[in-house]
Design a protein around this nucleic acid. Sequence first.
DNA 1: CATTTTATGTTAAAATATTAACAGTATGCG
DNA 2: CGCATACTGTTAATATTTTAACATAAAATG
Lengths: 207, 207
Amino acid sequence: MDTKNISQAVISRLPRYYRYLGDLKDEGTERISSGELSDIMKVTASQIRQDFNNFGGFGQQGYGYNVEYLYDEIGKILGLNEAHHLIIVGAGNLGRALTNYSNYENRGFIFEGIFDHDPSLIGKKIGELTVMPMDELEDFIISRNIDIVVIAIPKTGAVSVADRVVRCGIKAIWNFAHTDLNVPEGVVVENVHLSDSLMKLSYMLTQ
Amino acid sequence: MDTKNISQAVISRLPRYYRYLGDLKDEGTERISSGELSDIMKVTASQIRQDFNNFGGFGQQGYGYNVEYLYDEIGKILGLNEAHHLIIVGAGNLGRALTNYSNYENRGFIFEGIFDHDPSLIGKKIGELTVMPMDELEDFIISRNIDIVVIAIPKTGAVSVADRVVRCGIKAIWNFAHTDLNVPEGVVVENVHLSDSLMKLSYMLTQ
DNA sequence: CATTTTATGTTAAAATATTAACAGTATGCG
DNA sequence: CGCATACTGTTAATATTTTAACATAAAATG
Protein backbone atom coordinates (compact mmCIF):
# COMPACT_ATOMS: atom_id res chain seq x y z
CA MET A 1 0.00 0.00 0.00
CA ASP A 2 2.99 2.31 -0.12
CA THR A 3 6.34 2.96 -1.69
CA LYS A 4 5.55 2.81 -5.40
CA ASN A 5 6.23 6.45 -5.87
CA ILE A 6 3.00 8.36 -5.50
CA SER A 7 3.17 11.79 -7.07
CA GLN A 8 3.23 14.96 -5.00
CA ALA A 9 0.07 16.15 -6.74
CA VAL A 10 -1.87 13.15 -5.48
CA ILE A 11 -0.55 13.50 -1.96
CA SER A 12 -1.49 17.15 -1.86
CA ARG A 13 -5.05 16.23 -2.68
CA LEU A 14 -5.42 13.57 0.00
CA PRO A 15 -6.03 15.94 2.93
CA ARG A 16 -8.78 17.62 0.97
CA TYR A 17 -10.48 14.30 0.32
CA TYR A 18 -10.08 13.51 3.99
CA ARG A 19 -11.71 16.78 4.93
CA TYR A 20 -14.71 16.29 2.66
CA LEU A 21 -15.16 12.69 3.70
CA GLY A 22 -15.04 13.74 7.34
CA ASP A 23 -17.81 16.24 6.70
CA LEU A 24 -19.88 13.62 4.89
CA LYS A 25 -19.36 11.20 7.75
CA ASP A 26 -20.49 13.83 10.25
CA GLU A 27 -23.60 14.43 8.19
CA GLY A 28 -24.34 10.72 8.39
CA THR A 29 -23.78 9.96 4.72
CA GLU A 30 -23.02 6.27 4.38
CA ARG A 31 -21.98 5.85 0.79
CA ILE A 32 -20.79 8.07 -2.01
CA SER A 33 -19.84 7.62 -5.63
CA SER A 34 -16.93 9.27 -7.38
CA GLY A 35 -19.55 11.14 -9.41
CA GLU A 36 -21.26 12.66 -6.40
CA LEU A 37 -17.96 13.50 -4.76
CA SER A 38 -16.92 15.09 -8.03
CA ASP A 39 -19.91 17.43 -7.87
CA ILE A 40 -19.20 18.44 -4.30
CA MET A 41 -15.46 18.88 -4.61
CA LYS A 42 -15.32 20.29 -8.13
CA VAL A 43 -12.77 17.86 -9.42
CA THR A 44 -13.30 15.20 -12.08
CA ALA A 45 -14.66 11.81 -11.05
CA SER A 46 -11.86 10.30 -13.06
CA GLN A 47 -9.25 12.01 -10.96
CA ILE A 48 -10.91 10.86 -7.77
CA ARG A 49 -10.89 7.24 -8.90
CA GLN A 50 -7.33 7.47 -10.14
CA ASP A 51 -6.17 9.05 -6.91
CA PHE A 52 -7.75 6.41 -4.70
CA ASN A 53 -6.50 3.61 -6.88
CA ASN A 54 -2.94 4.61 -6.24
CA PHE A 55 -3.44 3.02 -2.87
CA GLY A 56 -5.64 0.10 -3.82
CA GLY A 57 -9.33 -0.35 -4.48
CA PHE A 58 -11.48 1.14 -1.76
CA GLY A 59 -14.76 1.05 -3.60
CA GLN A 60 -17.11 -1.46 -5.09
CA GLN A 61 -18.56 -1.52 -8.57
CA GLY A 62 -22.22 -0.61 -8.65
CA TYR A 63 -22.08 0.70 -5.10
CA GLY A 64 -19.44 3.36 -4.79
CA TYR A 65 -17.41 4.02 -1.67
CA ASN A 66 -18.34 3.53 1.94
CA VAL A 67 -17.71 6.94 3.46
CA GLU A 68 -16.48 5.85 6.86
CA TYR A 69 -14.24 3.12 5.48
CA LEU A 70 -12.72 5.44 2.89
CA TYR A 71 -12.23 8.14 5.49
CA ASP A 72 -10.39 5.74 7.77
CA GLU A 73 -8.26 4.36 4.97
CA ILE A 74 -7.15 7.80 3.81
CA GLY A 75 -6.45 8.64 7.42
CA LYS A 76 -4.17 5.63 7.63
CA ILE A 77 -2.43 6.58 4.39
CA LEU A 78 -1.82 10.02 5.85
CA GLY A 79 -0.36 8.45 8.95
CA LEU A 80 -3.14 9.73 11.19
CA ASN A 81 -3.77 6.39 12.81
CA GLU A 82 -0.87 6.94 15.17
CA ALA A 83 -0.18 9.99 17.25
CA HIS A 84 2.57 12.44 16.42
CA HIS A 85 4.50 14.31 19.05
CA LEU A 86 5.47 17.86 18.18
CA ILE A 87 7.38 20.72 19.64
CA ILE A 88 7.34 24.31 18.53
CA VAL A 89 10.48 26.36 18.32
CA GLY A 90 9.56 30.01 18.64
CA ALA A 91 7.08 31.40 21.16
CA GLY A 92 6.24 34.50 19.18
CA ASN A 93 2.81 35.25 17.84
CA LEU A 94 2.88 32.48 15.32
CA GLY A 95 4.16 29.86 17.73
CA ARG A 96 1.47 30.81 20.18
CA ALA A 97 -1.21 30.67 17.51
CA LEU A 98 -0.11 27.21 16.47
CA THR A 99 -0.08 25.95 20.05
CA ASN A 100 -3.61 26.99 20.53
CA TYR A 101 -4.71 26.02 17.06
CA SER A 102 -3.70 22.47 17.77
CA ASN A 103 -6.01 22.05 20.69
CA TYR A 104 -9.26 22.05 18.83
CA GLU A 105 -8.28 21.36 15.25
CA ASN A 106 -5.69 18.65 15.06
CA ARG A 107 -6.36 15.49 16.94
CA GLY A 108 -3.48 13.11 16.68
CA PHE A 109 -0.91 15.87 16.64
CA ILE A 110 0.17 16.36 20.22
CA PHE A 111 2.08 19.54 21.02
CA GLU A 112 4.46 18.57 23.79
CA GLY A 113 6.54 21.67 24.26
CA ILE A 114 7.46 25.14 23.10
CA PHE A 115 10.91 26.71 23.08
CA ASP A 116 12.31 30.20 22.75
CA HIS A 117 15.66 31.85 23.23
CA ASP A 118 14.17 35.04 24.66
CA PRO A 119 14.76 34.95 28.46
CA SER A 120 11.72 37.10 29.11
CA LEU A 121 9.45 34.46 27.61
CA ILE A 122 10.94 31.44 29.32
CA GLY A 123 8.69 30.06 32.02
CA LYS A 124 5.60 31.77 30.64
CA LYS A 125 2.49 29.66 30.12
CA ILE A 126 1.07 29.33 26.62
CA GLY A 127 -2.06 27.26 26.75
CA GLU A 128 -1.05 24.10 28.54
CA LEU A 129 2.62 24.52 27.77
CA THR A 130 5.44 26.39 29.46
CA VAL A 131 8.09 28.07 27.35
CA MET A 132 11.44 26.32 27.70
CA PRO A 133 14.92 27.60 26.97
CA MET A 134 16.70 26.60 23.80
CA ASP A 135 19.47 24.69 25.54
CA GLU A 136 16.98 22.09 26.68
CA LEU A 137 15.90 21.39 23.11
CA GLU A 138 17.92 18.26 22.36
CA ASP A 139 17.25 16.54 25.68
CA PHE A 140 13.55 17.17 25.39
CA ILE A 141 13.31 15.84 21.84
CA ILE A 142 15.06 12.65 22.78
CA SER A 143 13.40 12.01 26.12
CA ARG A 144 9.89 12.74 24.89
CA ASN A 145 10.17 10.90 21.58
CA ILE A 146 9.32 13.96 19.53
CA ASP A 147 8.89 13.21 15.84
CA ILE A 148 7.92 16.57 14.35
CA VAL A 149 9.52 19.96 14.98
CA VAL A 150 7.68 23.14 14.09
CA ILE A 151 9.97 26.03 13.24
CA ALA A 152 8.25 29.32 13.96
CA ILE A 153 11.15 31.72 14.27
CA PRO A 154 12.61 34.32 11.87
CA LYS A 155 14.78 33.01 9.09
CA THR A 156 18.05 34.04 10.69
CA GLY A 157 17.79 31.32 13.31
CA ALA A 158 15.84 28.76 11.34
CA VAL A 159 18.68 27.05 9.55
CA SER A 160 20.71 26.40 12.69
CA VAL A 161 17.68 25.12 14.58
CA ALA A 162 16.95 22.76 11.71
CA ASP A 163 20.51 21.48 11.88
CA ARG A 164 20.27 20.94 15.61
CA VAL A 165 17.04 18.97 15.51
CA VAL A 166 18.12 16.90 12.54
CA ARG A 167 21.27 15.99 14.45
CA CYS A 168 19.19 14.48 17.22
CA GLY A 169 17.17 12.37 14.87
CA ILE A 170 14.17 14.44 13.84
CA LYS A 171 12.81 13.32 10.48
CA ALA A 172 10.07 15.88 9.88
CA ILE A 173 10.04 19.66 10.05
CA TRP A 174 7.07 21.96 9.63
CA ASN A 175 8.78 25.14 8.56
CA PHE A 176 7.18 28.56 8.90
CA ALA A 177 10.42 30.49 8.53
CA HIS A 178 10.78 32.59 5.45
CA THR A 179 13.62 30.53 4.05
CA ASP A 180 14.30 27.09 2.62
CA LEU A 181 15.99 24.53 4.82
CA ASN A 182 18.69 22.21 3.62
CA VAL A 183 18.21 18.86 5.23
CA PRO A 184 19.84 15.50 4.59
CA GLU A 185 18.24 12.66 2.68
CA GLY A 186 15.47 11.04 4.68
CA VAL A 187 14.35 14.18 6.45
CA VAL A 188 11.19 15.81 5.15
CA VAL A 189 10.28 19.47 5.31
CA GLU A 190 6.85 20.92 4.74
CA ASN A 191 7.08 24.65 4.16
CA VAL A 192 4.39 27.16 5.00
CA HIS A 193 5.68 30.30 3.40
CA LEU A 194 2.99 32.83 4.23
CA SER A 195 4.62 35.62 2.28
CA ASP A 196 4.76 33.46 -0.81
CA SER A 197 1.11 32.69 -0.40
CA LEU A 198 0.21 36.33 -0.05
CA MET A 199 2.25 37.26 -3.11
CA LYS A 200 0.42 34.62 -5.11
CA LEU A 201 -2.83 36.22 -4.05
CA SER A 202 -1.49 39.60 -5.06
CA TYR A 203 -0.59 38.20 -8.47
CA MET A 204 -4.03 36.75 -9.00
CA LEU A 205 -5.66 39.98 -7.90
CA THR A 206 -3.58 41.95 -10.37
CA GLN A 207 -4.75 39.89 -13.34
CA MET B 1 3.06 41.16 -20.29
CA ASP B 2 0.02 39.44 -18.88
CA THR B 3 -3.13 37.58 -19.75
CA LYS B 4 -1.84 34.76 -21.94
CA ASN B 5 -2.71 32.14 -19.41
CA ILE B 6 0.30 31.49 -17.23
CA SER B 7 0.10 28.15 -15.46
CA GLN B 8 -0.46 27.88 -11.73
CA ALA B 9 2.80 25.99 -11.39
CA VAL B 10 4.76 28.93 -12.76
CA ILE B 11 2.96 31.43 -10.56
CA SER B 12 3.63 29.37 -7.48
CA ARG B 13 7.32 29.50 -8.22
CA LEU B 14 7.51 33.26 -8.69
CA PRO B 15 7.56 34.20 -5.00
CA ARG B 16 10.42 31.80 -4.44
CA TYR B 17 12.42 33.39 -7.23
CA TYR B 18 11.60 36.74 -5.75
CA ARG B 19 12.86 35.64 -2.37
CA TYR B 20 16.17 34.32 -3.69
CA LEU B 21 16.71 37.35 -5.88
CA GLY B 22 16.04 39.59 -2.91
CA ASP B 23 18.69 37.75 -0.93
CA LEU B 24 21.16 38.02 -3.79
CA LYS B 25 20.44 41.72 -4.09
CA ASP B 26 21.03 42.19 -0.38
CA GLU B 27 24.34 40.39 -0.68
CA GLY B 28 25.30 42.82 -3.41
CA THR B 29 25.30 40.34 -6.27
CA GLU B 30 24.83 42.24 -9.50
CA ARG B 31 24.33 39.57 -12.10
CA ILE B 32 23.36 35.93 -12.16
CA SER B 33 22.91 33.25 -14.77
CA SER B 34 20.17 30.68 -14.90
CA GLY B 35 22.88 28.09 -14.26
CA GLU B 36 24.08 29.69 -11.04
CA LEU B 37 20.54 30.28 -9.85
CA SER B 38 19.83 26.66 -10.67
CA ASP B 39 22.60 25.56 -8.32
CA ILE B 40 21.35 27.76 -5.49
CA MET B 41 17.67 27.02 -5.85
CA LYS B 42 17.91 23.36 -6.82
CA VAL B 43 15.72 23.64 -9.88
CA THR B 44 16.80 23.15 -13.48
CA ALA B 45 18.23 26.10 -15.38
CA SER B 46 15.84 25.23 -18.14
CA GLN B 47 12.86 25.71 -15.91
CA ILE B 48 14.16 29.05 -14.71
CA ARG B 49 14.54 30.33 -18.24
CA GLN B 50 11.17 28.97 -19.28
CA ASP B 51 9.49 30.53 -16.28
CA PHE B 52 10.96 33.98 -16.85
CA ASN B 53 10.21 33.85 -20.54
CA ASN B 54 6.53 33.54 -19.84
CA PHE B 55 6.69 37.21 -19.04
CA GLY B 56 9.22 38.34 -21.62
CA GLY B 57 12.98 38.36 -21.89
CA PHE B 58 14.64 39.73 -18.80
CA GLY B 59 18.15 38.53 -19.52
CA GLN B 60 20.87 38.99 -22.06
CA GLN B 61 22.78 36.34 -23.94
CA GLY B 62 26.34 35.93 -22.73
CA TYR B 63 25.61 38.00 -19.63
CA GLY B 64 22.74 36.48 -17.71
CA TYR B 65 20.27 38.43 -15.64
CA ASN B 66 20.74 41.66 -13.77
CA VAL B 67 19.67 40.78 -10.25
CA GLU B 68 18.09 44.07 -9.26
CA TYR B 69 16.26 44.47 -12.55
CA LEU B 70 14.92 40.93 -12.46
CA TYR B 71 13.92 41.33 -8.84
CA ASP B 72 11.96 44.47 -9.64
CA GLU B 73 10.32 42.95 -12.67
CA ILE B 74 9.14 39.88 -10.79
CA GLY B 75 7.91 42.19 -8.07
CA LYS B 76 5.83 44.02 -10.64
CA ILE B 77 4.47 40.78 -12.05
CA LEU B 78 3.44 39.81 -8.54
CA GLY B 79 1.69 43.13 -8.14
CA LEU B 80 4.04 44.31 -5.41
CA ASN B 81 4.67 47.67 -7.02
CA GLU B 82 1.45 49.01 -5.56
CA ALA B 83 0.26 48.77 -1.99
CA HIS B 84 -2.51 46.44 -0.92
CA HIS B 85 -4.89 47.26 1.87
CA LEU B 86 -5.98 44.36 4.03
CA ILE B 87 -8.26 43.66 6.91
CA ILE B 88 -8.32 40.61 9.11
CA VAL B 89 -11.53 38.98 10.19
CA GLY B 90 -10.91 37.09 13.41
CA ALA B 91 -8.88 38.41 16.34
CA GLY B 92 -8.00 35.01 17.72
CA ASN B 93 -4.47 33.72 17.98
CA LEU B 94 -4.04 33.41 14.27
CA GLY B 95 -5.46 36.82 13.47
CA ARG B 96 -3.18 38.36 16.05
CA ALA B 97 -0.17 36.51 14.69
CA LEU B 98 -0.89 37.72 11.18
CA THR B 99 -1.32 41.31 12.31
CA ASN B 100 2.05 41.28 13.91
CA TYR B 101 3.67 39.20 11.21
CA SER B 102 2.80 41.84 8.69
CA ASN B 103 4.73 44.57 10.42
CA TYR B 104 8.18 43.27 9.78
CA GLU B 105 7.75 40.82 6.96
CA ASN B 106 5.42 42.14 4.32
CA ARG B 107 6.04 45.61 3.06
CA GLY B 108 3.41 46.65 0.60
CA PHE B 109 0.67 44.77 2.41
CA ILE B 110 -0.92 47.24 4.78
CA PHE B 111 -3.12 45.84 7.52
CA GLU B 112 -5.78 48.45 8.08
CA GLY B 113 -8.13 46.80 10.54
CA ILE B 114 -9.11 43.73 12.48
CA PHE B 115 -12.62 42.52 13.25
CA ASP B 116 -14.19 40.05 15.62
CA HIS B 117 -17.68 39.18 16.77
CA ASP B 118 -16.62 38.51 20.36
CA PRO B 119 -17.71 41.53 22.46
CA SER B 120 -14.93 40.95 24.96
CA LEU B 121 -12.31 41.50 22.26
CA ILE B 122 -13.82 44.60 20.69
CA GLY B 123 -11.86 47.72 21.50
CA LYS B 124 -8.73 45.81 22.46
CA LYS B 125 -5.44 46.86 20.90
CA ILE B 126 -3.53 44.40 18.74
CA GLY B 127 -0.33 45.96 17.60
CA GLU B 128 -1.35 49.24 16.03
CA LEU B 129 -4.91 48.12 15.41
CA THR B 130 -8.06 48.14 17.51
CA VAL B 131 -10.50 45.26 17.24
CA MET B 132 -13.74 46.38 15.60
CA PRO B 133 -17.19 44.78 15.72
CA MET B 134 -18.44 42.76 12.79
CA ASP B 135 -21.28 45.12 11.94
CA GLU B 136 -18.80 47.77 10.89
CA LEU B 137 -17.21 45.44 8.37
CA GLU B 138 -18.88 46.59 5.18
CA ASP B 139 -18.56 50.31 5.86
CA PHE B 140 -14.90 49.95 6.69
CA ILE B 141 -14.10 47.96 3.56
CA ILE B 142 -15.74 50.52 1.35
CA SER B 143 -14.52 53.67 3.05
CA ARG B 144 -10.93 52.48 3.38
CA ASN B 145 -10.64 50.95 -0.08
CA ILE B 146 -9.72 47.54 1.23
CA ASP B 147 -8.73 45.10 -1.50
CA ILE B 148 -7.81 41.94 0.41
CA VAL B 149 -9.70 40.28 3.25
CA VAL B 150 -7.98 37.77 5.50
CA ILE B 151 -10.32 35.18 6.97
CA ALA B 152 -8.94 33.87 10.24
CA ILE B 153 -12.01 32.46 11.95
CA PRO B 154 -13.29 28.90 12.37
CA LYS B 155 -14.99 27.34 9.40
CA THR B 156 -18.50 27.76 10.72
CA GLY B 157 -18.40 31.51 10.17
CA ALA B 158 -16.04 31.63 7.23
CA VAL B 159 -18.50 31.06 4.41
CA SER B 160 -20.88 33.80 5.50
CA VAL B 161 -18.05 36.28 6.01
CA ALA B 162 -16.79 35.49 2.52
CA ASP B 163 -20.26 36.16 1.13
CA ARG B 164 -20.47 39.45 2.96
CA VAL B 165 -17.15 40.79 1.77
CA VAL B 166 -17.68 39.63 -1.77
CA ARG B 167 -20.98 41.46 -1.77
CA CYS B 168 -19.20 44.71 -1.05
CA GLY B 169 -16.73 44.27 -3.86
CA ILE B 170 -13.78 42.41 -2.42
CA LYS B 171 -11.90 40.52 -5.13
CA ALA B 172 -9.28 38.67 -3.08
CA ILE B 173 -9.54 36.52 0.03
CA TRP B 174 -6.71 34.99 2.00
CA ASN B 175 -8.46 32.10 3.64
CA PHE B 176 -7.14 30.40 6.77
CA ALA B 177 -10.42 28.72 7.64
CA HIS B 178 -10.51 24.97 7.43
CA THR B 179 -12.99 24.93 4.58
CA ASP B 180 -13.25 25.83 0.91
CA LEU B 181 -15.04 29.02 -0.03
CA ASN B 182 -17.40 29.29 -2.95
CA VAL B 183 -16.91 32.64 -4.58
CA PRO B 184 -18.21 34.06 -7.84
CA GLU B 185 -16.17 34.37 -11.01
CA GLY B 186 -13.60 37.12 -10.74
CA VAL B 187 -12.95 36.70 -7.04
CA VAL B 188 -9.74 34.90 -6.11
CA VAL B 189 -9.12 32.86 -2.98
CA GLU B 190 -5.75 31.76 -1.70
CA ASN B 191 -6.15 29.02 0.86
CA VAL B 192 -3.78 28.34 3.71
CA HIS B 193 -5.05 25.07 5.08
CA LEU B 194 -2.67 24.40 7.95
CA SER B 195 -4.20 21.04 8.78
CA ASP B 196 -3.77 19.90 5.20
CA SER B 197 -0.16 20.94 5.34
CA LEU B 198 0.44 19.07 8.56
CA MET B 199 -1.23 15.95 7.20
CA LYS B 200 1.01 16.09 4.17
CA LEU B 201 4.00 16.18 6.49
CA SER B 202 2.58 13.25 8.40
CA TYR B 203 2.24 11.32 5.15
CA MET B 204 5.81 12.02 4.14
CA LEU B 205 7.06 11.05 7.56
CA THR B 206 5.21 7.76 7.40
CA GLN B 207 6.90 6.72 4.14
C1' DC C 1 39.27 43.42 -33.82
C1' DA C 2 38.71 38.55 -34.43
C1' DT C 3 37.82 34.52 -31.80
C1' DT C 4 36.26 31.97 -28.04
C1' DT C 5 33.29 31.61 -24.33
C1' DT C 6 29.09 32.28 -22.00
C1' DA C 7 24.42 32.12 -21.47
C1' DT C 8 19.92 33.48 -23.22
C1' DG C 9 15.47 32.64 -25.75
C1' DT C 10 13.16 29.18 -28.05
C1' DT C 11 12.04 24.96 -30.20
C1' DA C 12 11.84 20.06 -29.73
C1' DA C 13 11.60 15.81 -26.89
C1' DA C 14 10.47 13.39 -22.81
C1' DA C 15 8.04 12.76 -18.78
C1' DT C 16 3.84 13.53 -15.94
C1' DA C 17 -0.59 14.38 -15.01
C1' DT C 18 -5.33 14.69 -16.22
C1' DT C 19 -9.33 13.31 -18.56
C1' DA C 20 -12.02 10.17 -21.14
C1' DA C 21 -13.53 5.59 -22.42
C1' DC C 22 -14.89 1.16 -21.41
C1' DA C 23 -15.08 -3.58 -19.80
C1' DG C 24 -16.75 -5.95 -16.08
C1' DT C 25 -18.92 -6.65 -11.63
C1' DA C 26 -21.95 -5.87 -7.80
C1' DT C 27 -26.43 -3.95 -6.72
C1' DG C 28 -31.24 -3.22 -6.71
C1' DC C 29 -35.60 -4.07 -8.35
C1' DG C 30 -39.37 -6.45 -10.31
C1' DC D 1 -33.74 -15.17 -9.78
C1' DG D 2 -32.80 -12.61 -13.97
C1' DC D 3 -32.22 -8.12 -16.08
C1' DA D 4 -31.20 -3.39 -16.14
C1' DT D 5 -28.62 -0.02 -13.82
C1' DA D 6 -24.88 2.01 -11.45
C1' DC D 7 -20.52 2.13 -10.48
C1' DT D 8 -15.60 1.01 -10.04
C1' DG D 9 -10.92 -0.20 -11.60
C1' DT D 10 -8.11 0.24 -15.40
C1' DT D 11 -6.47 1.15 -19.87
C1' DA D 12 -6.06 4.50 -23.47
C1' DA D 13 -5.91 9.29 -25.17
C1' DT D 14 -5.05 14.03 -24.36
C1' DA D 15 -3.06 17.81 -22.28
C1' DT D 16 0.32 19.90 -19.59
C1' DT D 17 4.69 20.38 -17.57
C1' DT D 18 9.42 19.65 -17.37
C1' DT D 19 13.80 18.86 -19.34
C1' DA D 20 17.03 18.87 -23.02
C1' DA D 21 18.99 20.73 -27.24
C1' DC D 22 20.44 24.27 -30.02
C1' DA D 23 20.83 28.46 -32.71
C1' DT D 24 22.13 32.95 -31.82
C1' DA D 25 23.87 37.05 -29.65
C1' DA D 26 26.44 39.58 -26.36
C1' DA D 27 30.69 39.63 -23.61
C1' DA D 28 35.29 38.62 -22.56
C1' DT D 29 39.94 37.74 -24.01
C1' DG D 30 44.19 38.31 -26.18
